[in-house]
Amino acid sequence: MPKLLNLLLAVEHGMKKPVWDCTMCGQCVLHSTGMTCPMTCPKTLRNGPCGGVREDGHCEVKPEMRCIWVKAYDRKVSLPLPTVWKEHYNDLRPPVDMQLKGTSSWVNLVTKRDQQTPAGWAKRQEETHSH
Protein backbone atom coordinates (compact mmCIF):
# COMPACT_ATOMS: atom_id res chain seq x y z
CA MET A 1 0.00 0.00 0.00
CA PRO A 2 2.64 2.63 0.86
CA LYS A 3 4.21 1.94 -2.52
CA LEU A 4 0.92 2.65 -4.27
CA LEU A 5 0.44 5.82 -2.24
CA ASN A 6 3.88 7.01 -3.19
CA LEU A 7 3.15 6.28 -6.80
CA LEU A 8 -0.12 8.22 -6.68
CA LEU A 9 1.66 11.09 -4.97
CA ALA A 10 4.30 11.17 -7.67
CA VAL A 11 1.74 11.01 -10.47
CA GLU A 12 -0.43 13.73 -8.92
CA HIS A 13 2.50 16.04 -8.32
CA GLY A 14 3.96 15.27 -11.73
CA MET A 15 0.72 16.35 -13.39
CA LYS A 16 -0.27 19.28 -11.23
CA LYS A 17 3.09 20.92 -10.68
CA PRO A 18 3.74 21.92 -14.32
CA VAL A 19 0.16 22.98 -15.01
CA TRP A 20 -0.95 24.65 -11.75
CA ASP A 21 2.33 25.09 -9.87
CA CYS A 22 0.86 22.68 -7.31
CA THR A 23 2.27 22.91 -3.78
CA MET A 24 0.64 19.63 -2.66
CA CYS A 25 -1.56 21.19 0.01
CA GLY A 26 -3.39 17.84 -0.01
CA GLN A 27 -6.88 19.39 -0.15
CA CYS A 28 -7.41 20.35 -3.74
CA VAL A 29 -10.08 22.92 -4.59
CA LEU A 30 -9.09 23.58 -8.22
CA HIS A 31 -12.47 22.51 -9.61
CA SER A 32 -14.31 25.19 -7.63
CA THR A 33 -11.82 27.99 -8.29
CA GLY A 34 -11.96 28.19 -12.07
CA MET A 35 -9.11 25.66 -12.32
CA THR A 36 -6.72 28.19 -10.79
CA CYS A 37 -4.78 27.18 -7.69
CA PRO A 38 -5.34 29.55 -4.74
CA MET A 39 -2.15 28.33 -3.11
CA THR A 40 -0.20 30.26 -5.76
CA CYS A 41 -1.64 33.47 -4.29
CA PRO A 42 1.24 34.94 -2.23
CA LYS A 43 -1.19 35.24 0.69
CA THR A 44 -2.57 31.72 0.01
CA LEU A 45 -6.11 33.09 0.13
CA ARG A 46 -8.72 30.42 -0.51
CA ASN A 47 -11.81 32.61 -0.35
CA GLY A 48 -11.36 35.25 -2.99
CA PRO A 49 -9.13 38.22 -3.77
CA CYS A 50 -7.64 40.57 -1.21
CA GLY A 51 -8.28 44.31 -1.34
CA GLY A 52 -4.90 45.01 -2.89
CA VAL A 53 -5.55 43.86 -6.45
CA ARG A 54 -4.09 46.49 -8.75
CA GLU A 55 -6.09 48.48 -11.27
CA ASP A 56 -4.64 46.36 -14.11
CA GLY A 57 -5.74 43.15 -12.34
CA HIS A 58 -2.24 42.31 -11.19
CA CYS A 59 -1.14 41.17 -7.75
CA GLU A 60 -0.45 43.48 -4.81
CA VAL A 61 2.58 41.41 -3.81
CA LYS A 62 3.93 40.45 -7.23
CA PRO A 63 3.06 43.25 -9.66
CA GLU A 64 4.33 41.20 -12.60
CA MET A 65 1.79 38.44 -11.93
CA ARG A 66 -1.93 38.56 -12.66
CA CYS A 67 -3.93 38.18 -9.43
CA ILE A 68 -4.87 34.53 -9.29
CA TRP A 69 -8.40 35.43 -8.20
CA VAL A 70 -8.87 37.73 -11.18
CA LYS A 71 -7.75 34.84 -13.36
CA ALA A 72 -10.01 32.43 -11.50
CA TYR A 73 -13.03 34.69 -11.89
CA ASP A 74 -12.42 35.19 -15.61
CA ARG A 75 -12.11 31.46 -16.11
CA LYS A 76 -15.15 30.70 -14.01
CA VAL A 77 -17.16 33.06 -16.20
CA SER A 78 -15.68 32.01 -19.55
CA LEU A 79 -14.61 28.35 -19.32
CA PRO A 80 -17.16 25.63 -20.07
CA LEU A 81 -16.82 24.14 -16.59
CA PRO A 82 -19.59 22.00 -15.08
CA THR A 83 -22.31 24.13 -13.48
CA VAL A 84 -21.86 22.46 -10.08
CA TRP A 85 -18.23 23.54 -10.06
CA LYS A 86 -19.23 27.11 -10.83
CA GLU A 87 -21.87 27.02 -8.12
CA HIS A 88 -19.17 26.18 -5.59
CA TYR A 89 -17.05 29.16 -6.58
CA ASN A 90 -18.26 31.36 -3.72
CA ASP A 91 -18.31 28.62 -1.07
CA LEU A 92 -16.62 29.38 2.22
CA ARG A 93 -13.56 27.13 2.05
CA PRO A 94 -12.24 26.01 5.44
CA PRO A 95 -8.77 26.89 6.72
CA VAL A 96 -6.01 24.77 5.23
CA ASP A 97 -5.24 21.65 7.26
CA MET A 98 -1.47 21.83 7.54
CA GLN A 99 -1.32 18.15 8.46
CA LEU A 100 -2.27 17.28 4.89
CA LYS A 101 0.66 19.15 3.33
CA GLY A 102 2.61 16.83 1.09
CA THR A 103 -0.08 14.16 0.91
CA SER A 104 -2.12 13.17 -2.12
CA SER A 105 -5.36 15.12 -2.49
CA TRP A 106 -6.68 12.28 -4.67
CA VAL A 107 -6.35 9.86 -1.79
CA ASN A 108 -7.74 12.42 0.65
CA LEU A 109 -10.71 12.92 -1.65
CA VAL A 110 -11.51 9.22 -1.77
CA THR A 111 -11.09 8.76 1.98
CA LYS A 112 -12.97 12.06 2.61
CA ARG A 113 -10.07 13.09 4.83
CA ASP A 114 -10.00 16.43 2.99
CA GLN A 115 -13.52 17.17 4.20
CA GLN A 116 -12.67 16.84 7.87
CA THR A 117 -12.72 20.22 9.60
CA PRO A 118 -12.23 21.18 13.27
CA ALA A 119 -15.31 20.48 15.41
CA GLY A 120 -16.22 24.15 15.87
CA TRP A 121 -16.04 24.79 12.14
CA ALA A 122 -18.06 21.68 11.30
CA LYS A 123 -20.79 22.60 13.77
CA ARG A 124 -21.12 26.12 12.39
CA GLN A 125 -21.29 24.85 8.79
CA GLU A 126 -24.03 22.45 9.81
CA GLU A 127 -26.00 25.21 11.49
CA THR A 128 -25.61 27.76 8.70
CA HIS A 129 -26.52 25.25 6.00
CA SER A 130 -29.58 23.96 7.79
CA HIS A 131 -31.42 27.27 7.49
Binding site: K43, T44, L45, L92, P118, W121, K123, E127
Partner: peptide, 24 residues
Protein backbone atom coordinates in the same frame (compact mmCIF):
# COMPACT_ATOMS: atom_id res chain seq x y z
CA UNK B 1 -2.11 34.15 6.40
CA UNK B 2 -2.97 30.92 8.20
CA UNK B 3 -6.59 32.08 7.93
CA UNK B 4 -7.99 34.45 5.32
CA UNK B 5 -10.50 37.26 5.97
CA UNK B 6 -13.71 35.25 5.43
CA UNK B 7 -12.35 32.33 7.49
CA UNK B 8 -11.41 34.69 10.34
CA UNK B 9 -14.96 36.12 10.28
CA UNK B 10 -16.35 32.61 10.51
CA UNK B 11 -14.04 31.85 13.44
CA UNK B 12 -15.43 34.91 15.26
CA UNK B 13 -18.93 33.50 14.68
CA UNK B 14 -17.78 30.15 16.10
CA UNK B 15 -16.52 31.90 19.23
CA UNK B 16 -19.85 33.73 19.50
CA UNK B 17 -21.47 30.29 19.65
CA UNK B 18 -19.38 29.45 22.71
CA UNK B 19 -16.44 27.40 21.44
CA UNK B 20 -13.04 27.78 19.89
CA UNK B 21 -12.42 26.49 16.38
CA UNK B 22 -11.48 23.12 17.88
CA UNK B 23 -14.84 22.80 19.61
CA UNK B 24 -13.37 23.45 23.06
Amino acid sequence: FDLDGPQAINVASILNAGTYLSGR
